[in-house]
Design a binder for these strands. Sequence first.
DNA 1: CTGAATCCTATGGGATACTG
DNA 2: CAGTATCCCATAGGATTCAG
Lengths: 125, 125
Amino acid sequence: MTAITASEEIVLEQPCPIRDVLDRIGDQWSLLILEALAPGTLRFNALMREIGDISKQMLSRTLKQLEQDGFITRTLYPEVPLRVEYALTPLGHSFLEPMQQLVAWADTHHRTIVAARLQYQASQT
Amino acid sequence: MTAITASEEIVLEQPCPIRDVLDRIGDQWSLLILEALAPGTLRFNALMREIGDISKQMLSRTLKQLEQDGFITRTLYPEVPLRVEYALTPLGHSFLEPMQQLVAWADTHHRTIVAARLQYQASQT
DNA sequence: CTGAATCCTATGGGATACTG
DNA sequence: CAGTATCCCATAGGATTCAG
């Protein structure tokens, strides 16, 4: 079938655990979403505003992925107009801990990296 | 110019530090390479064997990126046949510390995630 | 309001052949 | 041995439109 599967299939598992996890949250948006939800529950449009430059498309897709993987919960309130709230699960919260270490590292060493790039560029004449 | 720039331009910096860092090492190979170099210096083909399923193309590109950003050094020994050795810099080593936390997290919670996927799949009837 | 479907482009990454 | 250049395909992601 060359056709794109309409209801996107769920890939259950990849060989390497770390790859499996990083492939999922290593995209452009997952991490941003998780951190946006760290302070507390948010609705779809609130997330849009919070993140700023994400498209509805990608927010929707990524939220679904994160829900699949158990990082967040999606709660539908069948009111009019519709209300949907997203929140971190305990798994999602626990993930942010090691992640904060990385964020801290990035903040600390960012200038070093930029400097390295400048130096490399200069060394290439 | 629609033509692809032959000598790939160096992007010096992106607005958000964490994005800037993650965009660079969030690809499919950077992390694997860094961890392969953790025990010590390796040559090009040794890295190929160590990583297993990477193409020369991607290994070459990614090594260059990592060198640019100051994570690794490239040392050329102009012998015959040519010998090139790659090694972590202090920056590269320091990066692996927070990264180990994440790897540990992934190992610990991998089964939970797979379980979540199964449950989600089931819940979709 | 909360998405799903469609269309389109840019990029990541593999395979292969060629060079110093 | 250590790459670079070229070709090609699959996927990420934006914009827009449609639906519940």
